[in-house]
C-alpha cells in the first residue's frame, strides 16, 4: 500500500486535470480546475526549501568532518542563510533598494559570469574535437561554419551569399531535423505521461523503502 495509494492519488489528480481541461461547461468544473491549480502551486511553493536542506546537509557534513576545502562550505552556508534572513526579515519585499542592489549587483552578475565561462570550453572543444573524420562529420562542420559566419555581420561582408545560405540551413534542413526530433520527443513525452498516470512508470518515487 506504500506505493499503491500514492499512485492512486496521482491518477486521481491527473484525471481531474484532464477532465476539467476538456469539459469546461459548468461553473463548478472551472472552479475545480482553478482549485487544483492552486493546490499544485501551493504544494510546489512549500517544496522550495529542498535545496536549502540538501545544501545544509552536504556542507554541514563537510564542515563537521573537516573535509577538504571545508572552510568554503562555511561561506556557502553563511551566504545562503544570510541572504534568507536579509530578504525575509530586513528587505521584506523585492522593491527594497537593498534587495534590488543585491540581485542587480551580486546575484545577477554572478549568474551571468558562471554561464559565460562556457565560451572558453566551447572554443577549446571546437578546436580539439571538431575534426573532419568522415563525410557526416564534414557535413556537421560545414553547416556549423556557415552558421557561425552567416549570423554575424562579418559573413555578409565576406559575401552576401553566406547569410542567405545560413538562413536556408536554419529554415529548411534545420527545421526538418529539429521537427523530426521534436515529434519523436512529443510521442515519448505523451507515452511517459500515460505510463506515469496508470502507475507503470514508478521511477520518480525513488528507492525510499
Amino acid at each position: 500500500m506504500k506505493k499503491e495509494l500514492p499512485i492512486a492519488l496521482g491518477l486521481v489528480a491527473g484525471l481531474i486535470w484532464i477532465i476539467t481541461t476538456y469539459f469546461t461547461g459548468p461553473r463548478w468544473v472551472e472552479t475545480v480546475h482553478q482549485e487544483l491549480s492552486k493546490w499544485y502551486q501551493l504544494a510546489g511553493a512549500y517544496m522550495v526549501m529542498v535545496g536549502v536542506v540538501n545544501l545544509t546537509r552536504v556542507h554541514g557534513h563537510r564542515i563537521t568532518q573537516k573535509k577538504k576545502d571545508w572552510m568554503y562550505s562555511i561561506v556557502a552556508l553563511v551566504c545562503m542563510f544570510g541572504i534568507m534572513i536579509f530578504g525575509i526579515f530586513i528587505a521584506k519585499d523585492s522593491n527594497n533598494p537593498g534587495w534590488k542592489t543585491f540581485y542587480s549587483q551580486i546575484i545577477a552578475p554572478m549568474n551571468a559570469t558562471v554561464y559565460s565561462t562556457l565560451v572558453f570550453y566551447i572554443a577549446s572543444a571546437a578546436y580539439r574535437a571538431f575534426r573532419i573524420r568522415n563525410s557526416q562529420a564534414t557535413i556537421l562542420l560545414v553547416s556549423a561554419l556557415i552558421m557561425m559566419l552567416g549570423r554575424v555581420p562579418l559573413g555578409a561582408m565576406i559575401s552576401p551569399v553566406i547569410p542567405q545560405l545560413a538562413d536556408w540551413i536554419l529554415n529548411v534542413p534545420n527545421v526538418a531535423g529539429m521537427r523530426g526530433i521534436q515529434i519523436g520527443a512529443a510521442f515519448g513525452g505523451i507515452a511517459t505521461a500515460l505510463r506515469v498516470l496508470v502507475g507503470i512508470e514508478r521511477g520518480y518515487m525513488g528507492g525510499t523503502e
Partner: peptide
C-alpha cells in the same frame, strides 16, 4: 511519495491534455 505522486500526476495530466495537438 504522496507529494511526488501528486506533483507528477498533475504534470502527467497536463502533458496528456495539452501536448497532443500543439506539439504533435
Amino acid at each position: 511519495r504522496y507529494n511526488m505522486a501528486f506533483m507528477v500526476g498533475v504534470g502527467a495530466g497536463f502533458v496528456l491534455a495539452r501536448d497532443f495537438k500543439s506539439l504533435l
